[in-house]
């Protein structure tokens, strides 16, 4: 663990603790009561999904431009974290939806487009496993990573463009946020805490990818040497002693 990692972890833990305290002490909603506190985890998780896929977009475009392996690793790592947080968003939204809306799931535009985003980026991860050639993999997934981002504005705007049961954006909208300032402060603190967790996960995943590649390269080299030693010229006189 480097000193940067250690400091980042410490800062993340402190901010997480503060964010949790803020989420628990912010005033309850006039209508939903304490159930509204689920917003402090649901919204940051959704924000992280957007952020991760935006980083995947940036890194993918960067790879197409610079062809640097590190950008491919970044795009891949960010997509993995993004898929996790998209799943978390859907799960937390479902848990919030059951008591407040009355259903775990409904075919609402926001829910459907979010599920679509989840499956499209699962497809991205599947595509990365479809070939062993590192360059081909990087190129394909970079193109996919750029194209797939087109749906993120659709996910965000779905509640504005179409009739939905999901409420429109509270914070990320043209007008001023329609939320009590203490609730907004708690929400933003949680967004910050989740973002720090994202950075931590992303760094760890990228370093794991580097370690994996180093290991694979060393393994391939060792295997190559072994295979080289195993190959000997067959001595056919020994195998066919009766052959003249």
């Amino acid at each position: 663990m480097t000193s940067v990692s250690r400091r980042l972890t410490a800062v993340t833990v402190v901010v997480m603790a503060g964010a949790l305290a803020a989420a628990l002490t912010a005033p309850p909603d006039r209508l939903q009561g304490n159930l509204q506190r689920l917003m402090y985890v649901h919204v940051p998780a959704a924000w992280l999904a957007y952020l991760s896929f935006a980083i995947t977009l940036g890194a993918s475009a960067g790879w197409l431009w610079k062809r640097r392996a590190s950008l491919d690793r970044l795009a891949s790592a960010s997509a993995e974290v993004g898929v996790f947080f998209t799943g978390l968003t859907i799960a937390l939204g479902s848990i919030w939806g059951k008591p407040v809306w009355g259903v775990w799931w409904t075919w609402d535009p926001r829910l459907v487009t979010t599920a679509m985003m989840f499956f499209v980026y699962l497809g991205y991860l599947a595509l990365r496993r479809a070939t062993l050639d590192a360059t081909v993999r990087a190129r394909r997934s970079a193109v996919f990573g750029v194209l797939a981002f087109a749906q993120i504005p659709v996910v965000h705007m779905s509640v504005v463009w179409w009739r939905a049961v999901h409420q429109p954006p509270t914070v990320l909208k043209p007008a001023a946020p329609t939320i009590d300032e203490w609730m907004l402060a708690a929400l933003l603190l949680n967004v910050l805490a989740f973002t720090l967790v994202y950075v931590l996960l992303l760094r760890t995943r990228v370093r794991l990818a580097v370690a994996e590649e180093t290991y694979d390269a060393a393994h391939d080299r060792a295997a190559g040497e072994l295979a080289g030693q195993a190959i000997t010229t067959p001595d056919y006189r020994k195998e066919f002693p009766n052959h003249v």
Binding site: P27, P28, D29, R30, L31, Q32, Q36, M39, V100, W101, G102, V103, T106, V165, Q167, P168, P169, T170, T178, I179, D180, W182, M183
Partner: peptide, 20 residues
């Protein structure tokens, strides 16, 4: 089947802003 559609305004209970 009933689904509740609440709005995007979050306020504490004693707030006068925005009625349900």
């Amino acid at each position: 089947t009933m689904i509740i559609k609440h709005d995007e305004n979050y306020q504490p209970p004693d707030s006068a802003e925005g009625e349900p």
